[in-house]
Design a protein around this nucleic acid. Structure first.
Lengths: 252, 252
DNA sequence: CGACTTGTTGATGTACATCAAGGTACGTGG
DNA sequence: CCACGTACCTTGATGTACATCAACAAGTCG
């Protein structure tokens, strides 16, 4: 007997989420939590590289959590100057600001292809009303994002170009590593030097020269869209940065 | 560092909080919400100007909300470089990061004398478990703080010194105004030029020169610890900054 | 009163942006 | 295979925004 072709929707229920189980970073959810999250999730969204997921000034009807892929949050000034605010990795949440404050003040663009879980914002109240542990997890994610922004602000405001660059590479490596994206001290690295410049508040040319200078230190190697961490301590020393521990984390 | 030694407690129950009622900015709380907040509050803390409320690296046992006064959050590099991250006004929450993530990654120092409401962190679970609207308010406050940090990062990374300075003065004026601290277009302004420099990521001397340049525009007057907003639109134009509306806000 | 904090200004050096050019690696269609 | 386009990286020359250093004035505050 011929089976009908299964619809394109490969929606995996959260209970069988391959992501959650494989990574030790994420805290264990109870069956009730999982059941709710699964019912909360309304769709799965595939996004191409280099496309906008959320736009500054709009009010998205949805919340997203990242299943796979990299993206970045950014703001722009009227004349086109761009500041990258932070990067989104698997397990991160997108669009919370819009849901809570009713307007996005930033945009989000993918770096790689990305799979997102979609949650309708109306149901956010159900989450708060019936699932306080998950509500707390949202606060946890917000607090972590704030800590990253704080460190980032310290970088752009007070670190030198070399320190900033070292800090960013270390930060991104650690975050990728935390969600299991590192293999033998190497991660895929989808940023261009323009992204690095726009993150660190400098020009493209200066970012290039600073990266060269940093390579000379032999602490990191950056080529062919991959980043190899050769000497983590040396990099941390250059960056004047202590990586904070952060286990276990929630994954909604 | 000030110890949480409660003075001969003049503890006003939250139901009669003079602050809440007078300001239209704050959303109305139900009697149940008020009763819980009142029971949540364990003490009132008076802090002198220029003293640390929270310290980077420690893990405070308390959460605070600001009743009166100004403070600022900051981080320091090992060699003493300081970056001011944000300012705290009446209605703002302090110490949430420590409660959620178990370690403060920044310090908080008062600019003026300050009165804080003290909440024990253990009871935070009760808040999440039994008072989802208040839990949502905490998320609201976190989301707002993030928006401010985003804008701040854009400033330090991409705005010119003059734009940055205009942005900061406008931002601080609006925040003070929102909680009723403006009288006839004037607010008390307890920052020194060193604070401005450390907020905007520049040197003291350059902050001074940029402030002079900004005064020449006649949009704003800054003297004797007071800030007068002469032409809000002109200032916003210089800053390339649209002030986001933000009513009503919670006040826990 | 000195000692200290805060604001102010000029001189000088440096870190960074901007401009301009070219190089490498990857595509595409012929 | 080539010719061509394009994305990204690289380098040198020049200009400018900023930091640093130094000196001084005007207020507080013991």
């Amino acid at each position: 007997m011929t089976q009908p072709v299964p619809p394109p929707a490969r929606r995996v229920p959260c209970e069988q989420c391959p992501f959650r189980s494989k990574k030790k970073v994420f805290r264990d959810f109870t069956p009730e939590e999982l059941a709710f999250v699964s019912s909360f999730k309304s769709a799965e969204l595939n996004v191409d590289p280099r496309t906008n997921v959320l736009l500054q000034g709009t009010n998205s009807a949805h919340l997203y959590s990242v299943l796979t892929g990299w993206a970045f949050r950014y703001k722009m000034l009227p004349d086109g100057r761009r500041q990258i605010l932070n990067y989104a990795f698997p397990g991160d949440f997108l669009g919370l600001q819009a849901s809570v404050l009713n307007e996005m003040q930033h945009s989000v663009e993918t770096l790689t292809g990305m799979v997102l879980c979609v949650f309708p914002r109306e149901k956010l109240w159900e989450l708060y009303g019936g699932h306080p542990t998950l509500a707390f997890d949202l606060t946890w994610l917000a607090a972590q994002e704030m800590q990253i922004l704080d460190e980032h602000l310290l970088s752009v405001g007070r670190r030198t170009a070399l320190e900033r660059t070292a800090y960013l590479l270390l930060h991104l490596f650690v975050r990728a590593e935390q969600v299991g994206l590192a293999k033998g001290g190497v991660i895929q690295f989808p940023l261009t030097q323009q992204h690095i410049a726009d993150t660190l508040g400098m020009s493209l040319v200066h970012a290039n020269k600073t990266l060269k200078r940093l390579s000379a230190s032999k602490a990191v190697r950056l080529k062919d869209k991959s980043l190899q961490l050769v000497d983590r301590d040396a990099l941390a020393r250059i960056a004047q940065y202590d990586v904070p521990a952060r286990y276990p984390r929630p994954f909604i």
